[in-house]
Amino acid sequence: MDEAAWKIIVELRRTPNVTRAADRLFMSQPNLSKKLQGIEAALGVRLVLRTPKGISFTPEGEYLADEAELMLARLAEIRGNLLRLGSGASGTLRLGMTNGFARHLLPPCLKRFKEEYPGAALDIATDISAAVVRRLERDEIHVGFIRGEGEGGFERALIGSEQACLVHAVPIALDDLPTTPQIAYLSDPFARRLVERWWHSHFRARPLIGMRANHGDTCLEMIANGLGYGVFLAPNFLGEGRQLWSTPLHFADGQPVLRQAWMIWRREFSDIPLIRNFLGHMQGEIAAGLL
């Protein structure tokens, strides 16, 4: 049954007179009678009985009329949802981001986006930058927020950059680093490549890895206890409450060791209204210096 058939059944119950129902449906009486017979034939049941006062519904007809009203209400709801989706005012937006973005940078921006588009749902996945790029490649997310130069032919908007720093518990000279234990924790290949470039611009020897940690906070605790130094690419990781030294890093030519932060997305995704609205909102946040 199509929408027109549902409307016929509903109108016949509201107006139990074929002629008047036909007028309300902008149909001729013979055409309505023919369509009703076609519905009954297709379903294999008798839906209405003709009486001197008009028509009355059989139990099967009453059941079908109840279902028809539900179907029409559901169709109206679907149409409304599609209109909202078409305007980009609702739907689910899948975002991928590093833990630093999720903890420190994006929550205020996402709050403002939700205030502008309350019908939008956000599905957020946190991971290292390389994994966020892979998620975008596999269409698991719509927009990613990464640090470092990620591969892939994506559209991107520069958010900003941060200077890497050496973190240590006591003063340390650059020349002493090859013989001082390093506490390594960087799991993101983008970050490791940047640190390796900095290291090899100064030293031929490989760093002396004294310990490996799986998280920056763990690395900081080890540094605070004098077990070595660490390299951090996000200064907001340092937080407060620890008495540690932080030395900005430079390449051998004097250029600062900077890691850029990006918003990335697939070009074809920007044709989806909700994603287009989100990208526009975030680009406005970036331009205003709010991200």
Results as ranks from 00 to 15, higher is better:
Val133Glu: 14
Val133Leu: 09
Arg134Asp: 15
Arg134Ser: 15
Arg135Glu: 07
Leu136Val: 12
Glu137Pro: 09
Glu137Arg: 14
Glu137Gln: 14
Arg138Cys: 07
Asp139Val: 03
Asp139Ser: 10
Asp139His: 13
Ile141Leu: 11
His142Arg: 03
Val143Thr: 10
Phe145Leu: 04
Phe145Arg: 05
Phe145Ser: 03
Arg147Ala: 14
Arg147Leu: 06
Gly148Ser: 09
Gly148Gln: 04
Glu149Ile: 11
Glu149Asp: 11
Glu149Pro: 01
Glu149Cys: 03
Glu149Val: 12
Glu149His: 08
Gly150Cys: 01
Glu151Trp: 05
Gly152Asn: 07
Gly152Tyr: 08
Gly153Thr: 10
Gly153Gln: 09
Phe154Gln: 03
Glu155Cys: 15
Glu155His: 10
Arg156Phe: 10
Arg156Ala: 14
Arg156Lys: 15
Arg156Ile: 08
Ala157Met: 09
Leu158Pro: 03
Leu158His: 13
Leu158Asn: 05
Ile159Pro: 04
Ile159Val: 15
Gly160Gln: 00
Gly160Cys: 03
Ser161Asp: 01
Glu162Lys: 12
Gln163Cys: 13
Cys165Pro: 01
Leu166Cys: 11
Leu166Thr: 10
His168Ala: 12
Ala169Glu: 08
Ala169Ile: 03
Ala169His: 14
Ala173His: 09
Leu174Trp: 07
Leu174Asn: 02
Asp175Trp: 05
Asp175Pro: 04
Leu177Gly: 02
Pro178Gly: 05
Pro178Leu: 03
Pro178Gln: 02
Pro178Asp: 04
Thr180Trp: 00
Gln182Lys: 10
Gln182Thr: 04
Ile183Tyr: 10
Ile183Met: 05
Ala184Tyr: 09
Ala184Asn: 09
Ala184Arg: 13
Tyr185Leu: 05
Tyr185Val: 04
Tyr185Ser: 06
Tyr185Arg: 04
Leu186Ile: 12
Leu186Arg: 10
Ser187Arg: 15
Phe190Asn: 15
Ala191Leu: 08
Arg192Asp: 14
Leu194Asn: 02
Glu196Gly: 01
Arg197Ser: 12
Arg197Glu: 14
Trp198Pro: 01
Trp198Cys: 02
Trp199Asn: 10
Trp199Arg: 04
His200Pro: 02
His200Ile: 08
Ser201Leu: 05
Ser201Asp: 08
His202Arg: 00
Arg204Lys: 12
Arg204Trp: 07
Arg204Glu: 15
Arg204Val: 15
Arg206Gly: 12
Arg206Cys: 08
Arg206Ile: 05
Pro207Glu: 11
Ile209Glu: 11
Gly210Cys: 01
Gly210Glu: 02
Gly210Asn: 06
Met211Gln: 13
Met211Pro: 02
Met211Thr: 04
Met211Ala: 12
Met211His: 14
Ala213Asp: 06
Asn214Met: 08
Asn214Asp: 08
His215Glu: 12
Gly216Arg: 07
Gly216Leu: 05
Gly216Ile: 10
Gly216Ser: 13
Gly216Phe: 07
Asp217Tyr: 10
Asp217His: 12
Thr218Val: 13
Cys219Leu: 13
Cys219Glu: 12
